[in-house]
C-alpha cells in the first residue's frame, strides 16, 4: 500500500511540476472526449424523446359500411379488453364527417355530399411502443371480418428510431476514435517522460527497484492525467450544452416537439471520468511496457 502511495505522490509531483504542460495535455484529452460525450448526451435526449412519444402513434381501424351497431359494440368490447391496446376511441361516421367539415377548406366539399361516404372507425393507441408490436396488433385487428382497412401510423417512428440508432453508432465510432487519440496522447507523454527520466530509472533499478516500482508512478500519472481530462470534458460538455440546448429546443419547438435537453447526469459524468482515467492508465501501461528499457543503462 505504501508503495502505491509513494507512486501516487510521485505522479502528483510530476503533474504539479509542469502545470501548464499538464493542463495542455489534459485539455487535449478533454477536447477529444467532449465530442463523443456531447454526442452521447444529445442522442440520449433525442432517444428519450423518441421513446416518450412513440406510444402516441395510432392505428386507425376503418369498418365496412353498414356494420350493425351491435357488432360495432361487440368489436369495441373485444378491443377494450385486449392487453396490447392502451387506449381506444370510437369515431362514428357522422362525427368523422363533422370533423372533416370543421377542417379549413373542407366545409364546402362535405356540404355538397348527398351521402356520408366515411365509415365508422376506431382510433387505437397500442400499449407497446415498438414498430414490430404495432404491426402485430394491426394484423390481429385486420382479422375482424367487419374491418375494411387498417392504417398504421408508425413509419415516422421507425425513421426516428433508425436515426437514433445511426446517431448512437456514430457516437460510438467517434468515442472509439477519440478514445484511441487519448491513448496515443498518454502513450506519447509517458514515452517522453521515460526518455527524460531514464537516468533516474536506471539508478533505481541499480539500487534494487522492481519493475513494478518503476512502472507504478507512470501508470498513476496516466490515470491522473486521464481523470483530469475526463473532469475537464465533463465541464466542457455541461458548458456547451448550456449554450446550444436553448437553440435545439427552439428548433424542436418549431416542429411542435417539446424537447427538453438535460445535461449529463452525475453518473454519466462519473462514467466519463472513469473511462478517461482507464484509457490514461492503459496508454501509460502500453508506453511503459514498450519504452521502459529504451536507452536505459544500468551498469
Amino acid at each position: 500500500m505504501s508503495a502505491h502511495l509513494i507512486a501516487l505522490r510521485q505522479a502528483l509531483r510530476r503533474l504539479g511540476r509542469k502545470p501548464v504542460a499538464t493542463l495542455l495535455s489534459a485539455l487535449v484529452i478533454a477536447i477529444a472526449l467532449t465530442l463523443p460525450a456531447l454526442g452521447y448526451v444529445l442522442v440520449d435526449n433525442v432517444a428519450g424523446l423518441a421513446n416518450g412519444i412513440s406510444g402516441k402513434p395510432e392505428i386507425s381501424v376503418f369498418l365496412k359500411n353498414e356494420v350493425p351497431p351491435d357488432r360495432v359494440k361487440a368489436i369495441e368490447t373485444s378491443l377494450r379488453i385486449d392487453p396490447a391496446i392502451a387506449a381506444l376511441r370510437f369515431v362514428p361516421r357522422d362525427v368523422a364527417l363533422k370533423q372533416l367539415a370543421a377542417r379549413g377548406g373542407f366545409a364546402d366539399v362535405t356540404g355538397a355530399l348527398v351521402d356520408n361516404p366515411l365509415p365508422d372507425a376506431f382510433v387505437i393507441e397500442p400499449r407497446n411502443d415498438t414498430p414490430a408490436s404495432f404491426e402485430a396488433l394491426r394484423k390481429q385487428i385486420a382479422t375482424f371480418p367487419e374491418v375494411a382497412e387498417t392504417q398504421l401510423d408508425s413509419e415516422w417512428v421507425e425513421r426516428l428510431h433508425a436515426i437514433v440508432v445511426l446517431a448512437r453508432s456514430i457516437t460510438l465510432l467517434l468515442a472509439s476514435l477519440l478514445g484511441a487519440a487519448l491513448l496515443i496522447v498518454t502513450f506519447n507523454t509517458i514515452r517522453l517522460q521515460l526518455l527524460t527520466q531514464r537516468q533516474e530509472i536506471s539508478v533505481k533499478l541499480l539500487l534494487g527497484a522492481t519493475r513494478n516500482y518503476v512502472r507504478r508512478p507512470f501508470l498513476y500519472f496516466g490515470l491522473l492525467q486521464g481523470l483530469l481530462g475526463g473532469v475537464l470534458a465533463w465541464i466542457l460538455v455541461a458548458a456547451l450544452l448550456q449554450v446550444i440546448a436553448p437553440q435545439i429546443e427552439a428548433l424542436a419547438q418549431r416542429y411542435s416537439i417539446a424537447l427538453n435537453i438535460g445535461g449529463p447526469a452525475p453518473w454519466q459524468g462519473a462514467v466519463l471520468c472513469a473511462f478517461a482515467a482507464l484509457l490514461g492508465w492503459l496508454g501509460a501501461g502500453i508506453s511503459v511496457r514498450r519504452h521502459l528499457h529504451d536507452g536505459l543503462v544500468i551498469d
Binding site: L205, L206, L207, G208, Y213
Partner: peptide, 10 residues
Amino acid sequence: RRSQVPYLRR
C-alpha cells in the same frame, strides 16, 4: 528469476 534480481541488488 528476473523478479528476484531487485532483492539481490538490495
